[in-house]
Design a protein around this nucleic acid. Structure first.
Lengths: 337, 337
DNA sequence: CATAAACATGAAACCGATTTCAGCAAGTGA
DNA sequence: TCACTTGCTGAAATCGGTTTCATGTTTATG
């Protein structure tokens, strides 16, 4: 059954060695203040001596808490190639680990709210769930309703106000990027959106529209191309935009990868960046530094987003009701605009 | 204690509803063939009716298996920005999930073989550990010795032959990339290595050297620049190479990011890629498709690497002793060489 | 000084599965 | 028909912690 090569160590052994009961051992390890200092010392000493390691399964069984937080990432192709999610996850993992919790990673389709993933999340196998890249929030709502603490990275739809979320200020970011294009003199600014089924995609587009209003530029719907974060879609869209609107002199792309695609399309049509057309991206991932021309982009704190989500989760678990957090963005000016 | 909002469901309830004992319920769920078909049906029917969900903690406590596999990724800066590890991990996760196991992600420094991570891994909290990005294998050896199944992504040092590993054929890949440069007519080929403290970095360099031998080109040690996978280090090294060896006409970079950096450095010095200097990368991550000129690179199956690691882990757990697997590489010719 | 309240502790029940062991029923062989 | 497998089943022990409850000991209160 248990055939570990390590010597087993249990409360029973500590209790024997320290001359106290299992109950007292448990109290000591859980910081119960009522135990006499001498016993506390004896227990710690005994534990150290036999190299005690707690058995989490046993603890989980009796407390109902597993010490695991699931991070659920939507399993579509774009999730894999984009370093974004790895960075978010490492931010989550770092904070959780510092607090004695472990990160359970689930890369799975989120549109199935009755599949194995849904069952797993609802079954108290984890103490909380952090959702990322949400298109549909039916699964999120279902899990939240089952009583499991939930934090969403991104902004849930308006009618899910009871769900805690952490997000980048994508409206401000979209505004910032677009506004920069107007400020450097662009007259005809197009955008390649992200997936507007996600809050990030939608909000960045809102920021784009807001910048038009603030700069008293009439919004031309023909200059909005609806993409899905991917290089291929963005490139096709940019080529189309150039064909139908030859006077474009600025492009705001909803992520760095789309911006790269836009630049590729623009140069393919014999125009130059930034001289003929300026391009602004979003994310400030590695590509924005490594591309040529280096990409002017709206920076978001990706690792910080993961950390904030984990911190929110910790607060919720400890019974607090934290406010949702919106992280600010910053314009990084390089060469492309 | 257990205050889930879901109705609790246990073997006891099934047993009552189905009119059998808990023992029989357990046998049914574990596929014990001795149970009478009628009872099996009754148990499944009862389970479905009350919406039974197993409690993994309870199972873990009595079997000693947790159903968790840890993926341990070395926590240095390069791990974050590089999409490589996210892709590997998603490959692992997919295979494990298909087999009812969960992926526990630990992003942690691997040089501490007596810290909390080490203790956790040795404490039978997980059924197996997959290590990635290994510089030093002291922790790996320690965990393996403690009796926990271990799979390494990468190749461990020669004296750790008992540890199972899964790797890309980096020597062949390095050869392939370098050989291509010779085949297209390059005479003076430099390389920017990865971290040669890792097997991947070292083996790609070996492949570079091998290609020289096969092409009867004398190896010039001055053309080897020792990098660490990062953009910044690679760019500085490339600038140095150009300064000291003005006749370089080909560069093999140990990863795509370094190749991007090399191209940036080359163009900064007023030379053109591939006309003046051809550049080959390694990985075939997204950047190699999105860069301009598009990067000629050695493709490795990154997701497949994760999948292979997970499959090896499954075999080890089920008592087999699988052979270590070496995945092949493929040259993807684009524009940069 | 008597009584109540606070404190410190151990015995035992409990969490929800798995597994051993014993026992009953049916089938086999002599 | 008797002894003996073989097949199927349930009671009870077990995994390693946590928690309740009862008890003995101090300290505070009137």
């Amino acid at each position: 059954m248990n055939d570990s090569t390590l010597p087993r160590s249990t409360y029973a052994e500590i209790s024997e060695l320290a001359g106290v009961s299992k109950s007292t051992v448990s109290r000591v390890f859980n910081g119960d203040s009522r135990v006499h200092p001498d016993r506390v010392a004896a227990v710690f000493e005994a534990a150290k001596q036999i190299g005690y390691r707690p058995n989490r399964a046993a603890r989980a069984l009796s407390t109902g808490r597993t010490g695991l937080i699931a991070v659920v990432i939507d399993d579509d192709v774009s999730a894999l190639g984009d370093p974004f999610w790895g960075m978010v996850t490492s931010g989550v993992s770092r904070v959780l680990m510092q607090n004695g919790l472990q990160t359970l990673l689930m890369v799975a389709p989120l549109d199935d709210d009755d599949g194995p993933v849904a069952h797993y999340l609802e079954s108290n196998e984890v103490d909380g769930v952090i959702f990322a890249q949400v298109h549909k929030d039916t699964l999120v709502r279902k899990v939240a309703k089952s009583g499991v603490p939930v934090v969403v990275i991104g902004t849930p739809s308006d009618d899910a106000t009871d769900i805690h979320f952490v997000d980048t200020n994508n409206v401000a970011g979209g505004y910032m990027g677009t506004n920069h294009l107007f400020k450097i003199g662009c007259k005809t600014v197009a955008t390649i959106t992200g997936d507007i089924g996600t809050s990030a995609g939608l909000h960045r587009l809102k920021g784009f529209e807001l910048a038009h209003k603030e700069n008293n530029v009439k919004l031309n719907k023909n200059l909005i191309a609806y993409g899905n974060w991917s290089f291929d879609s963005a490139k096709i869209l940019m080529l189309r935009l150039l064909a139908s609107n030859p006077d474009i002199d600025g492009v705001f792309a909803a992520n760095d990868i789309s911006a790269m695609a836009a630049i590729a399309a623009i140069e393919e049509r014999g125009k130059r960046v930034p001289d003929d057309i300026a391009v602004v991206g979003f994310d400030d991932t590695l590509v924005s530094q490594t591309s040529r021309p280096a990409l002017t982009t709206v920076k978001q704190d990706i690792v910080g987003l993961g950390q904030a989500a984990a911190e929110a989760m910790l607060e919720i678990i400890s019974g607090e009701k934290p406010d949702s957090r919106i992280l600010s963005t910053e314009l990084i000016i390089r060469q492309s605009a």
